[in-house]
Structure formats: C-alpha cells, structure tokens
C-alpha cells in the first residue's frame, strides 16, 4: 500500500518536474543553437544581398534586394568553378581511397592478434596526435624531389628526382597509401568496428574454404557499411575544409579553402576596375564562404540519418 502511494506521489512530482525540465532544456538548446547559427545566418544574409543593402540600417537579416550577383562575380572573376571542381575531385577521390585503404589497415590491426598489433595500434594513435605543421616541410621537400631510394634517378638518369607537387595523382597516391588527412582516425574507426565482429563469422568463412583475402572481400567488407560511411563522410569534411595540406601539395591547382584565404586580395584587384565599394567586397566574400560550406552541408544533411545510425552500429559506441 505504502509503496503504491509513494509511487503515485513520485510520478506527479516526477512528471511535473519533467515538464519544467523539458521547457528549460528547450530554451537552452534554442539559445545555444542561435549562438552557434548566428555566424551562418549572417553569412548567408550577406551573401544574397545586393551591396546597396549594406547601407540600409533597417535590414537585419532579410535583404530587400535579393541577388545572386555575388556568386556570379565569384564564378566569372575569381575562377571559382574550377576551384569547386578541384575540391570536389580531390575530396571525393581521396575519401574513397581512404575508405578502402583504412578498412584494410583497420581490419588487420583489429583482427589479428599478432605480436606487433599493440604497437601498431599505438602508432596509429601517434599519427592522429601529430600536428600536420610538423610533417609539412619535410613532406614538401620529399615530394618536390621524389626519388624512391635512388630507383627513380636510376631509371630516368636525370640526376634529380621527379617533382610530385602540383599534380592530382600525388594526393591520391598519398591517400591510397594510408597517409591521407587524419587517416589515423579512419583506421581507428575501422579497428573498433572490426574488433566488435564475432569470431564465428570468420571461422565459418574459413571452414567454407575462404582464404584471408576472400574472407575480407566477401564477408567483412559488405558488413562494414556503417564504418565505411562514417569514414567517407568524415574524410569528405576533412579534405574539403583543409587548407594546410592543400597549400603544401599544390600551388597552381586551387581548392576552395585556398581561394578563400586569399579572397580579400583577389577581390581588391578585381574591384579596382569597377566602382569600388568596400561593402561589395564583404558581400562577395561571404558568398565565397557560403559556397565553401554549402556542398558539404548538403551532403551531410542528406546522409545524416544514415550517418548517425552508422555510428551506432559501428562499434564505436558500446
């Protein structure tokens, strides 16, 4: 009796408290969301307004003169379509390569309890911890005069190695060999996933006559949809937004983030020839920022549910 009474009391308080709590929580979240979103709203609003609206004090977010001219300027004067294309090619290509290669590495580390696997795991963590600035300069020197232990000079007989910089294949090669941007993280994700796969699956495959390679391709890979998706999306984000690595590898091939960093200067040169208004630069700049993040946002939005589900299923989580 007593228990039931207590239960009843508790539920009233409990649910009342719960309501207050959810209201408070909602307010908190909305406020946080606003703070987080503020720069984006601002950016978007600037990007789609005509320069004359910058002077108008009564406009806060919604511009009176909606225009795409800012984007047009980007495409015509600043060569943004090629930057967009370059970034897309590089991001997609390298993300795919990373996905494939890191899966292999993750599988090896996760499944095989060989002597060195603990050490290897530690090395993977190492790669995550090292800031790219550290390896930047040596990589640059290495790639500018690439000579694989003397083999290449022997073949070409030219005395110096080949210059691998400023070409697409280089960055693909690097990604394909597991050294892409934050590959360590990708390997980690795969490792965790593969660790969580029950042994029986493998043993069944072995009994059926698969060698290691077949086991990998026939059984493991199809099951690894979840971590693959995670790695792909995360890699896309990393490659798309990366500035440092791109600047090291390329000088003439430009990606969006590289263009973005130099946009103020570029715009000043362009606008010298047109009626110069400092506000015109701001709107075009913001349009460039929007262009930089929009594709990634769209990608994320469309794949979001799958993404979150994958995280659940990937073994990263319990």
């Amino acid at each position: 009796m007593q228990n039931i009474k207590k239960r009843g009391e508790m539920s009233l308080l409990y649910y009342g408290g719960k309501m207050v709590w959810s209201v408070l929580r909602f307010i908190f979240l909305v406020e946080m969301a606003f703070i987080v979103l503020y720069p984006f709203i601002y950016m978007l609003s600037m990007a789609i307004r005509a320069p004359e609206d910058m002077y108008d004090m009564s406009i806060v977010w919604v511009p009176k003169h909606f225009t795409f001219d800012n984007f047009k300027t980007l495409f015509e004067h600043l060569n943004y379509e090629s930057a967009l294309f370059n970034t897309a090619i590089i991001s997609v290509g390298c993300s795919l390569l990373q996905m494939v290669v890191c899966a292999m590495a993750g599988y090896s580390i996760g499944r095989f309890k060989s002597k060195g696997s603990g050490l290897l795991f530690g090395l993977v963590i190492l790669t995550i911890l090292i800031p790219p600035q550290l390896t930047n300069l040596p990589n640059y020197i290495l790639l500018s005069d690439f000579d694989f232990f003397g083999i290449i000079t022997a073949i070409t007989g030219s005395g110096t190695g080949i210059n691998l910089l400023d070409q697409y294949p280089t960055i693909y090669l690097v990604a394909a060999l597991g050294q892409g941007i934050r590959s360590g993280m990708a390997i980690l994700i795969f490792t965790q996933y593969f660790k969580g796969i029950p042994d029986e699956l493998e043993q069944a495959a072995m009994i059926d006559g698969c060698g290691y390679f077949k086991t990998y391709t026939r059984i493991m890979v199809p099951n690894a949809g979840a971590p693959s998706l995670i790695v792909f999306i995360l890699s896309m984000v990393w490659y798309w937004c990366d500035y440092y690595t791109m600047v090291t590898y390329f000088t003439n091939i430009r990606t969006l983030s590289v263009n973005l960093s130099g946009i103020k200067t570029a715009l000043q040169t362009v606008f010298q020839t047109e009626a110069y208004s400092p506000y015109k630069i701001v709107t075009v700049e913001q349009a460039a920022c929007v262009l930089c993040i929009l594709p990634i946002l769209i990608l994320f939005l469309s794949l979001q549910k799958k993404f979150v589900n994958s995280i659940i299923n990937s073994g990263l989580v319990g």
Binding site: S22, R25, F26, F28, L29, M32, A33, V36, L37, P39, F40, Y42, M43, V237, W240, C241, D242, Y243, S257, L260, S261, E285, Q286, C289, C292, I293, I296, L297, F300, L301, Q304, K305, V308
Partner: peptide, 30 residues
C-alpha cells in the same frame, strides 16, 4: 539534451551544432 527531443528536432539540432566544424575555415565572420 538533444537526445531527449523528438526525432526530427533532434536531427535538425544535430546538424546545427555540427555545422561549425563542417564549416572549417569560415571564421571570417568572427
């Protein structure tokens, strides 16, 4: 906090909060 909201709200909010790290080098606004 997000986990306790409904599904659609949750996905919207997740996107909102994740957006800054997607945006990378767009902190010019600041």
């Amino acid at each position: 906090m997000i986990s306790e909201t409904g599904r659609t709200v949750r996905s919207v909010l997740t996107l909102i909060f994740y957006a800054p790290s997607l945006a990378g080098n767009v902190y010019m606004i600041w």
